[in-house]
Each structure stands twice: as structure tokens, then as C-alpha cells.
Amino acid sequence: MLKGKGIPIFITFLTGMIMIISFFIPHKPFGDIEKISLTWYSIIAGFTMLLGVDSLIGMHFRKLKRKDENWFFSLVLIIGFTATVVVGIIETVRFGTAFDERSYFTYIYNYFIVPLQSTMFSLLAFFIASAAYRAFRARNFDATLLLITAIIVMLGRVPLGEQISPYLPKFTEWIMQVPQMAAKRGIGLGISLGALGVSIRIILGIERSYLS
């Protein structure tokens, strides 16, 4: 009985209903439930971080043990992970928090994570351009519209656009404020209505795929 899906479905129903009821009763003890729940949610999510890291490190450790192709890079990953955690622990003991400006942990953040992250994302500028070439070839009316809008928005956001025509930045602004917003709002409403439906199905135990 304990191993079945009955208890998890009951827990889902109970927590879901408490969250909904607390929204309509803004008095104690219900009033604080949303805030408390978000804290609890963060705590549980904090533990799941261990599962994720275990999966990542475990996979690379196995690659290293089997001496798979590119095992050296798995070693780099494990050393990078271990060094960061060790430095974080040492600096937490030293300064009370690893995030102190003087700590080597902050040094790792500033000179390793920040450049690697922003370079990785800036690399997409090149790939997005080549993807655009393939995707935007004006094959039909819709693709042409997408292409033209993208070009107008890009030009309207740089000084060159204003040099071409002073109306271009204004037209870009109009695209963003009117047709773009209308479609975005329509898509958002569709997503929200869908999320609402799925949430109700989950609370009522109709949707159970998350337990499989």
C-alpha cells in the first residue's frame, strides 16, 4: 500500500488544495501558507541539486574509470567541480560566506564562470546567423514576414537604423508595442489556460504521468 500511487496522489491533492484555499483566505494560519510553501519548495529543490550533481559527476567518473574516448575532459570536469566546492568550503569557514568579495570563490566566479558563460552565449550570435540563413529564405509569405520583421527590429535598435530613416526606430517601437504584443499576449493566454487545465488535472489525480 505504501509503495503504491495512492499516498502520492493524496499528498498532491492535499498540498494543491491548501495552496488554492490559502489564496482565498488571506488570514492566519492560511495567509502565510504561500510564503511558507515557497520556502519549503526551495529547501526540497536544494536537496534535488545533490541528485543532479551525483548524476553528472557519476557519469564522468564512469567515463574516467573505463578510460573512454575524451576521458581527459571528464577529469577536467571533475577537477573543476571538486576545486570549486573545496574552495567554497574553505572560504565559507574563512569569511563566514564564500561570496565575500575577497574570497577565492568570488575570484573563480569573476574570472572563470562569467567569461565562460558570456562567451558561450555570444557564440550563439554566429550560429543564430547561420540558422537564420537556412530558416529565413523567403519561401512563402509567412517566412518573408518573419524575415522582414527581424531585419526591421535589428536595424531599428542600432544607430545605423536611424541613419537610414529617422522613422525606423519609431516603426520598430510600434511593431514591439502593437502586433508583437498582441500575438505574444494571445500565445501567453493560451499557455496560461493550458497550465490551468493541467494543474487542475494534477490536483484531481487525473494526470499522473509525473509519478511514473
Binding site: L56, F73, L77, G80, V85
Partner: peptide, 29 residues
């Protein structure tokens, strides 16, 4: 590239472990 990529993943995973401890587990629990 592979070196930088793997280093990034490893360091970021380590960073988030310390972050989760410092900003979630310790102050909230």
C-alpha cells in the same frame, strides 16, 4: 573548446552546490 566546455560545466556545478548551501539550506533550514 572541449577543455573550456567541461571546465565550465564542472565549475558551475560546484558553484551551484555552494550557492544552494549559502542561500537556501543554511538560511532557510
Amino acid at each position: 573548446y572541449k577543455f573550456a566546455e567541461h571546465l565550465y560545466v564542472g565549475i558551475t556545478a560546484g558553484y551551484w552546490i555552494i550557492y544552494t548551501w549559502a542561500y537556501v539550506i543554511q538560511p532557510m533550514l
